[in-house]
Amino acid sequence: MNLLKFFRKDTTAPAARERLQILLAHERNMRDQPDLLGVLREEILAVIGKHVKLDPDKVKITMDRGSTVSTLEVDIEVPNRFEKLAVGAA
């Protein structure tokens, strides 16, 4: 057994520092700005909701806020009979 490894404890402070640096860089940029990702999510769902009755259980949204790039994934299961619903609603 590696003696050094035996005595060395798993250090978590570097992970804490790194996570904070990334998160705070993002939050500082976003300060006093509308949450673009949040606005996009709401508007996209609203547009789709005009045409399709959205089942909340069939909507998967993932957001990943990074330091330079963020991603928004909207995964909506649209039933094939949506046209009928849309016509019925119109």
Partner: peptide
């Protein structure tokens, strides 16, 4: 902090 379990003052 010395054992790297806690953020240090410098961090």
């Amino acid at each position: 902090a010395a054992r790297g379990e806690m953020l240090s003052v410098d961090d």
